[in-house]
């Protein structure tokens, strides 16, 4: 296929997926709303039934936006890590970045909440607190991984280091759980199942502003990201300020992973899987294409994952994290098998 037509068809496919996912997540749920009524409710002059209107504008619309942005954010976070570490298996969840953010949120729920500081215990302040704590946690782990990455050789070692960070933060979280009251434990557990419906309109700015800023910042770094794929030495010889780029990647990827984790819980495997799907569709390493592609692909994937978590006919909502793991883990296995095959064919 010619590159131009592949590009066009690829983005057409992604746009179609996003529109489909968005429409379905507005129409489906415990109460089904006919699609023409959805359109009417959102754009039409005529009023629709007020209960539908409430569900649509106060619940499903913010949830769909949250799902889309969360998917986009996690995917770009994963793409940045895979590019910088030159490791196809890197991602916010695998490298322990999400665990760092989880630790931050756990600290807020189990250490700060019981103190009952007025401004901090609910609403905007409470969410801002989680957000900052999660970003500190993800940034801390990402910073340590970046430092260690310069000393370790080989892609597998880096993953093991990330895994250890994950275990370490998990251990601290367990410690907090052990020492906490059941009310806090319950609220932590519910958070940790993951959900896209925890960002109502009033706190939406806390969610979308940092994400949009970081997505834009990543897109602006497309050119040096393309060069860093050759490795730091080659990138430097091409004129890339590698230290600045490393800081840029640190800030963007940990902010993206941190924000999503703070509001939606630890969402597994989206960050690692989506960049591979996009490379598979577009057959290019060019970040000017991959970044927008990952934004739409990740957004669509999370919209569908969210639909999957509230299968029609089921009364309960399934934990989101289980759904993304079920979608993502097979993709990761596929990537592993494929890269093994490719290496094998050259070694023999």
């Amino acid at each position: 296929m010619r590159p131009k037509s592949r590009l066009f068809l690829g983005f057409l496919l992604l746009a179609g997926l996003c529109i489909l996912g968005f429409s379905l997540s507005l129409a489906l749920g415990s109460v089904s709303i006919p699609f023409e009524k959805v359109l009417q409710g959102l754009f039409g002059e005529e009023k629709i039934r007020s209960s539908w209107d409430l569900i649509l504008t106060q619940y499903r619309l913010p949830k769909a936006i949250t799902a889309f942005l969360a998917g986009a954010a996690l995917s770009i976070s994963g793409l940045l890590m895979q590019t910088y570490f030159r490791n196809p298996l890197a991602g916010p969840f695998v490298l322990g970045i999400s665990s760092g953010a989880t630790l931050g949120v756990a600290a807020v729920i189990m250490l700060l909440d019981p103190l009952g500081i007025p401004w901090f215990s609910e609403g905007l302040g409470r969410n801002a607190g989680s957000l900052i704590a999660a970003c500190l946690g993800s940034g801390l782990v990402m910073g340590m991984i970046l430092m260690l990455a310069r000393k370790v050789r080989g892609p597998t070692t880096l993953l093991l280091v990330g895994l250890m960070f994950g275990y370490a933060s998990g251990g601290l979280v367990n410690l907090l759980v052990y020492l906490s009251e059941s009310r806090q434990i319950q609220s932590f557990l519910i958070w940790s199942f993951g959900s896209f419906s925890r960002v109502p309109w009033e706190i939406m700015p806390l969610f979308y502003i940092p994400i949009l800023v970081a997505l834009l910042a990543s897109l602006l770094a497309s050119k040096p990201l393309n060069a860093i794929q050759l490795g730091e030495n080659y990138a430097r010889s091409l004129g890339v300020s590698v230290d600045r780029l490393r800081l840029w990647i640190l800030l963007c990827s940990s902010l993206l992973a941190g924000v999503v984790t703070a509001f939606c819980g630890p969402v597994a495997f989206v960050g690692i899987a989506v960049p591979h799907l996009c490379r598979g569709i577009f057959r290019t390493p060019d970040h000017r294409i991959l970044i927008p592609a990952c934004i739409f692909m990740g957004g669509a994937l999370c919209l569908f994952a969210d639909l999957g978590s509230q299968l029609p006919g089921l009364e309960v909502t399934l934990p989101l994290n289980s759904i993304t793991s079920l979608i993502g883990a097979p993709i990761v296995v596929w990537v592993l098998l494929r890269s093994n095959q490719r290496k094998g064919s050259f070694q023999s």
């Binding site: 196809p88 794929q229 050759l230 010889s237 490379r279 390493p285």
Partner: peptide, 25 residues
């Protein structure tokens, strides 16, 4: 760095492996 890159180019022993990168690119 950018004006150095116009004066000096290097070919190293570092292994280059980028998925989907073609010769031309």
């Amino acid at each position: 760095p950018s004006s150095l890159a116009r004066k000096l180019a290097v070919v190293l022993t570092d292994h280059v492996e980028v998925e989907c990168l073609c010769v031309e690119d």
